[in-house]
Structures are given as structure tokens and as C-alpha cells.
Design a protein around this nucleic acid. Structure first.
Length: 317
DNA sequence: GCTTAACCTGGACGC
DNA sequence: GCGTCCAGGTTAAGC
């Protein structure tokens, strides 16, 4: 256990329009944030045993960490190099009224920059699974295979399992966690990455182009276009990646004439839909997608009960 | 190149 | 209480 790690605290100035933790932490891009007994948001970061705890105080973001977490790493996690204010202004000047409305409905929603390993294996759990089930699967994997980090402010914490633990997991253990057919993809993908040289192979993808990184990810068992795009967008700095799931496909059919006729998300439909997003919203099309995704989930009222309790500002669902 | 079924599981829903 | 459907997808087989 790493309960003895020193706790460090820092505060950084972040305009309220740039970050709303309630939106970011439950927006279906990351699955390990929890509220602690004081109402702060908390998450283990990657496999190294570091825990980040955050709270907003007016224009300040208070960040506490147990374990090494430089201020630059915290800034990087929330992608503060990207200014939502500037992007919103750009899209408003371009006449993208629907997108500006979606942004204004969820101010402070951002794309997080997650640890690639945690992000990849989280989305390997996501095939045909609702968000609460993905959360439970990721939590179960961490409890079963990750290091026990003890508890902090009433929250029991586990590091995300490393590749060795994932590759040597028993299929029966993953079955017990309810992973179903996704379990074999997790073990096989961990083994594939180890055979490529370990997590350095994954980290190297941050320096590759979007198309290269996506093609490499799709060599992994269980990783198709959608999962690859999620990993590209949420951890590999590929802001133009547009994951097309059933909800975004619905948005694409409404927004783009050429997508109207696609009844299911075939490879051709996937390419057309994501291409339309990129053509219309440019190099940050993935961010635009996230606002529409959030709006679509909210519109359809399919946030589950567990997520709703984390979303005090949202109403109507 | 496209469609379809199978893969696992559990919660929601209708009866 | 029970049966059926479906969910933020991928894969392989068949056409």
C-alpha cells in the first residue's frame, strides 16, 4: 500500500467556462472518477500509484495529489493547452449554431488526456456495454489485478493493472468480473503489446500521425474503428479522431445530408460520418463530437442512475 | 464490400 | 416471477 506517500497541494487559475468537473468526470470518456466524502473528485492516475483529487473553488482549481504529480501533468490531464473559449468563438464565427448551443448547454466539458494504457483497456471493456457496466468492469479489473493503494478521504483506491498483470490474468477471473467476451480481448491485447516491447509501444503512438496511430491500435484483438478512435481522442492527442457509436451516428444522420441514408454503422458509413465531422469542424472535430454526444445522451435521458447522482447540475433526466 | 450472427451479461420492460 | 430485448463493438462467415 502507498498510504505513506506525501500529499501535495496546488491551485491553478482556470476560468469556470473552461472546466466543469461534473461534466468531465462522468461524460463517458473516463471511468474511474469518484466523489469522495468531502465532495471532491478523485481518481487514480495510470498504474504508478498516483492519485489525483480535485475541487473547484470559484476561478481556482485546487489539486491535491498523493504520489508524484507535477502541475504540468495536472494541466496536461485536463488539456488546458486547448482553450474552449477560443474554439467556441471560432465555431460561432463560422456559423456553427448547433455546436455552439451544445457547448453552451454543457460549459466546461473538455476532452481529458488520459493514460493511454488505462484508456485502451477501459475502452476494450466498452463493446456493447452501457457506461455503468464499463465503470464496473474497469473498477473490477483494478481491484482484482491492480495494486491496492489503500483509502483516502473515504474512497478505496486501486492502481490500474500493468500489462504483465493483464496478460497473465486468468480468463475465469475476468469472467467473474462480468467482462464476458471482452475478457479474451484484454488478455490477448496485453500480450500483443508486451510482444511489441511493452507500453513504450503504446506511448510512442502519441508521436505518430492520427492515421498511423489508429492503424496500429486496430492490430490489437478486440480493437475496431470505434475503440481505436476513442483511444486516439482520449489519450493520444488526436483531436481530430471522431468515434462513431450509435448515438453519434444518430447525430450524423440528422446533421449531414450524405449520412441520412446509413441505417447501420458499416465501415463505409463510419468513414463517411467521421469524415463529415472532420470536414465541418476541423482539427478539433473530436471535441465537437463530445459535445454532441453529451447532448444526445442527455436528450434521450439515458444517463443511468449512478451517473445522475454525480451530476447535480443536470436536471430533467 | 456488405450483411448477419455470435459473443457475455445484467438491467429494463412488458406480461 | 419470467421471458425478451438491448447496450457507446468486434469478428468471422457467407453472400
Amino acid at each position: 500500500m502507498k498510504m505513506t506517500s506525501a500529499v501535495t497541494s496546488k491551485a491553478i487559475l482556470v476560468p469556470t467556462s473552461e472546466l466543469d468537473l461534473d461534466h468531465v468526470c462522468v461524460s463517458g470518456q473516463t471511468f474511474r472518477w469518484q466523489r469522495d466524502e468531502d465532495g471532491w473528485w478523485m481518481t487514480p492516475v495510470g498504474c504508478a500509484g498516483t492519485v489525483m483529487r480535485v475541487h473547484r473553488q470559484d476561478e481556482k482549481l485546487i489539486i491535491e495529489s498523493r504520489g508524484p504529480l507535477a502541475e504540468s501533468a495536472a494541466r496536461s490531464y485536463f488539456n488546458f493547452a486547448v482553450s474552449m473559449k477560443e474554439m467556441r468563438g471560432h465555431w460561432e464565427r463560422s456559423g456553427e449554431g448547433d455546436l455552439v448551443r451544445a457547448i453552451d448547454n454543457t460549459p466546461g466539458l473538455r476532452i481529458a488526456r488520459q493514460d493511454p494504457l488505462e484508456c485502451l483497456f477501459s475502452f476494450l471493456c466498452s463493446s456493447a456495454a452501457p457506461i455503468h457496466r464499463i465503470r464496473r468492469s474497469v473498477d473490477g479489473m483494478s481491484r482484482e489485478l491492480g495494486e491496492n493503494l489503500g483509502s483516502w478521504h473515504g474512497v478505496e483506491l486501486f492502481a490500474f493493472p500493468d500489462l504483465e498483470s493483464l496478460s497473465s490474468a486468468a480468463k475465469s477471473d475476468l469472467d467473474r468480473l462480468g467482462l464476458g467476451f471482452r475478457g479474451r480481448y484484454i488478455i490477448a491485447s496485453a500480450r500483443y503489446i508486451l510482444a511489441q516491447g511493452g507500453r513504450a509501444w503504446l506511448d510512442r503512438l502519441r508521436g505518430c500521425s492520427y492515421s498511423e496511430a489508429k492503424a496500429e491500435l486496430m492490430k490489437l484483438p478486440g480493437v475496431g474503428e470505434k475503440v481505436a478512435d476513442c483511444v486516439c481522442l482520449f489519450s493520444l492527442d488526436k483531436h481530430e479522431a471522431v468515434p462513431i457509436d450509435v448515438h453519434i451516428a444518430r447525430v450524423a444522420r440528422r446533421q449531414f445530408d450524405q449520412c441520412e441514408s446509413f441505417e447501420s454503422v458499416t465501415p463505409r458509413a463510419y468513414a463517411a460520418m467521421s469524415g463529415c465531422f472532420r470536414e465541418r469542424y476541423g482539427e478539433y472535430a473530436g471535441w465537437a463530437q463530445q459535445y454532441f454526444f453529451y447532448e444526445e445522451i442527455d436528450r434521450r435521458g439515458i444517463w443511468d442512475q449512478e451517473l445522475k447522482k454525480h451530476r447535480p447540475k443536470m436536471s430533467g433526466h
